[in-house]
Amino acid sequence: MQTKLIEDVLYGPALMLGGSRLENDELIKLAREEFDGQPFCIVRNWMMLDILLPENEERDVRKRGLQPTVLLVHEAVFDSEGRIAARDSFITGFQKDYYGCFLESEETLFILAGRGFRKHVSSPAFQALNAYGNTGIRA
């Protein structure tokens, strides 16, 4: 059952989104200039997951000023804090803000590069994915 849930998250239909078209070096330079002092991470091959949480859990997330959306990253390009190795896959914490090619979690600003996807996932599917691929990284 868990395998089916994970397969649906990873390979099921999703809305295609475009991130920044800049090259990695350009993005790093720009981010260092624009977001001086703020932790940032440039990612490629990403997917925004809107998690369909039970009402009480969603209420708790929103009380913290967050949205029940996370970023599933398949390729970290650069992390200003050095916490995430290049090419690492991970799942972020909940979304604080999202605009264009920027998604901010409680801890980190993510610069979305290249093409990505967005989809709704059930809470059980998210839990299965998190348990399967948990790297321990929460940015």
Rank of each mutant, 00 (worst) to 15 (best):
Q127N: 04
L53E: 09
D25E: 14
F78P: 00
S80M: 13
V121F: 01
F35N: 09
E104L: 11
M1T: 14
P13G: 09
I91Y: 00
S122W: 07
R59L: 12
R83V: 12
D88I: 06
T92R: 07
I137N: 02
K119H: 01
S122P: 00
L5T: 07
F94T: 08
R62G: 02
D25R: 13
G19E: 05
L71K: 02
M1Q: 08
M16A: 10
K29G: 00
Q38L: 15
A125P: 00
S123H: 11
P54H: 14
L52A: 09
D97Q: 11
A128M: 02
E26H: 04
M47F: 05
D97H: 13
D36F: 12
N56S: 15
I137A: 04
L22I: 03
L52N: 04
Q67T: 13
A125R: 03
N45W: 09
R32W: 04
V73N: 01
I84K: 02
E7R: 13
D25Y: 06
P124H: 12
S80A: 13
D79H: 08
K119D: 01
V73K: 06
L5P: 00
L27N: 01
D79V: 10
E26W: 03
L10K: 07
M47R: 05
A113S: 14
F102E: 08
G136Y: 08
A31C: 14
K29Y: 05
L49Q: 03
F102P: 00
V43Y: 04
G136E: 05
S80K: 09
V73I: 15
A139V: 11
Y132H: 10
F90G: 05
I6Y: 11
N130A: 14
Q38F: 14
E106D: 03
K119V: 12
E104Q: 13
L30R: 08
D36Q: 14
V73S: 11
P124D: 13
E23C: 05
G37E: 06
L103D: 03
L17Y: 07
S89Q: 11
K96V: 15
E58N: 06
E106S: 10
L53F: 13
C101M: 07
G136H: 05
F126S: 01
E55Q: 09
F35E: 00
D8V: 10
R62E: 09
E26G: 06
N134G: 13
P39I: 15
S80E: 07
R44I: 12
S123T: 10
F35Q: 02
E23L: 14
F78S: 04
G116N: 02
W46M: 05
L53G: 01
E23D: 12
M47E: 04
G65S: 01
R32G: 09
